[in-house]
Design a protein around this nucleic acid. Structure first.
Lengths: 200, 200, 200, 200
DNA sequence: AATGAATGAGGGTTCATTCAT
DNA sequence: AATGAATGAACCCTCATTCAT
């Protein structure tokens, strides 16, 4: 039975992923999830004790990876320091590698955790992520001659935008390579924009 | 009681604005809106004949202004042509004026219409806006040497990002001047980013 | 003001007639009636103290006439006695006159009182009418050789049918002459049917 | 609880039958039906997914039988041809057999489908039935010397009356044999009436 | 492990009626 | 005489959750 149990549990998570992705946490229906898994609503509660718990199980690994990444971000620091180089092709190369490494993080469930979690304990995660990236930006613009991009509000805005761009790529571009291209251009766009902004 | 009608109707609209803003159309509760206005749910239906009608009343002016702006966008065309100038201060001046003109459009209710309208007739408005801006981008990048930003997917992404940036400014920056500054920087950022992208 | 009052009151009755006719008492909406009269729901209550009272005002004359007719039915007795005659044209002539005399009774409001009054004090009127006609039938078949049509259940059925036929004519045939023709044929049909039934 | 399901479901259908029978579809209350079955309104939705679905379950068999009967009516054609016989007892015999065969059709739920279904998909069924019988009448009166009963309006009226008579028998005569007697007399009455009408 | 019956609260909506103005 | 704001109960329906089997 253990085998069957795991299969069903996994099926529930898969269908829950789709349901949360389509409707968000609050509007997702446990009945729908159970039905899609060919299962009874009552039985769903044998696997997950509540709607919130199901959501938690769905994204907890993503959350851990995400937290880990935030704690160890300095390992990737070099990438952003590559801005010093004048050659855009070098930048692109670094960026593509960097983003390729992040593939395991930028998953559908990661998107769900950040963007479809209103009503759960995770609803502030996106804000935390924004703050993290924003702090990053501010830190790196200390060297810059002017303080324009050090405006916290603008840094937060740009950070949120970047994150929303990532979300968009995950949500709308299913093909992995195409998505990586898009993300690379997106990051390039942001880095060059910031670069330019600090010139004046 | 005639005199109270306008007051209460306005109160309902204000509370509805808050409720829709917080929860979105589908999750907003008419009972909540009525309660916040010190009123019974039944009475709310004296003022608005349905949830959708209430939403419509809330955003219809915003929608009209928005449509008008899209139809008459060429009047502001000169702004973007100012990109030819090499002086960033000229750009900023133009942008600030341009965005100042748009102030009556970038309201909280506009945000609600674009971002909290799932389930209403307005739910596609944001998509239309994105397409509009995206077409604009593509048109203006015909002159550019390379076709990088003419990738429709990237143009759409950038357009969506820009619009989301506007939404963010409306949502998070209450002070008008501060918001105008932020939006100016945001647009500047996008124009320079696009400018740079077309170089390579 | 008295003049205006009567006009409005009459207008309310006219619109109520239409509403009750279309939806029946329970499903009729006072709001609709007021709206159709270009009037406020509140003001309707100045003219009629309740939904039931409005219905009562609408059909009370019909009810009085109806009661009067039932009490004085013997005045029309001769008509039915004409059955003795073997000539169908004589029957038809009598019937047409008889039914023409009843025109003031067979009105739309009479129909409403009998068929659209569920939920009011009048909801049993149709049953009383059926019993009245049924008693009539039974009385006249005492002379007949057999007791077939004296079966109370059958008499009641035939009576109800006849009344429903009248209702149908009122409801579905707007032209007065056409309606009179139809009713004449209908009564003829019933008289001949009864005549035949008593033969065996 | 599996064992209770069928019992409760049946109970709901029985109570629904009573409620629809008493108040018609639109005025029937699901709360009442649930309460009468000793159940919560929410639970009723475990058994039937909507008010309309409940109504559908109640009458779907009746509707199928009814459609089948209309398609295969020619099998019973001989009955009406028996009119050629001069002996009323022969008619009665045929009629009684004919109507006895129809017993499974003339049920309380059949009555609900025809007469209490306003607001459902079945609300036109009675009209279709009337047209069916009416066409039947018209077809059989082609042979007759005169065109009196071929008046479509009169044929429709008579057809509606006959059907209403059946409805009355179902509604008011619980005993099966008594009902069969009544229906036989009713049909006899109509056949003789039509017969007589075509004489003149 | 699995079923699905059952609950209770909440959703949007309509209604007859009351009453201050 | 007239307005229309306000109430409260009822409508159909959906949901997360509980629990006896």
């Amino acid at each position: 039975m253990q085998y069957k149990k795991d299969v069903l549990r996994e099926s529930l998570l898969v269908e829950a992923e789709q349901e949360f992705f389509e409707k968000g946490y609050l509007n997702a229906s446990l009945r729908q999830i159970a039905k899609r898994s060919g299962m009874t609503i009552g039985n769903l509660y044998h696997y997950f004790e509540s709607k919130e718990a199901l959501f938690h199980e769905l994204v907890k690994n993503e959350h851990e990876n995400f937290i880990y990444m935030m704690k160890h971000h300095y390992e990737h620091e070099f990438v952003l320091d590559a801005r010093g180089s004048g050659d855009i092709r070098v930048w692109k190369g670094f960026l593509r590698n960097f983003l390729s490494d992040l593939k395991p993080i930028f998953t559908k469930r990661f998107l769900i955790m950040l963007d479809m979690s209103t009503g759960t304990n995770y609803e502030n995660t996106k804000g935390e992520f924004v703050q993290f990236v924003s702090a990053h930006f501010l830190e790196h613009s200390k060297d810059a001659a002017t303080a324009r991009v050090t405006s916290p509000k603008f840094a937060e805005l740009i950070s949120r935008q970047l994150i929303d761009g990532i979300m968009y790529a995950i949500r709308s571009v299913p093909d992995e390579n195409e998505r990586l291209d898009l993300l690379t251009d997106l990051f390039l766009f942001y880095m060059m924009g910031i670069n330019e902004m600090t010139k004046y």
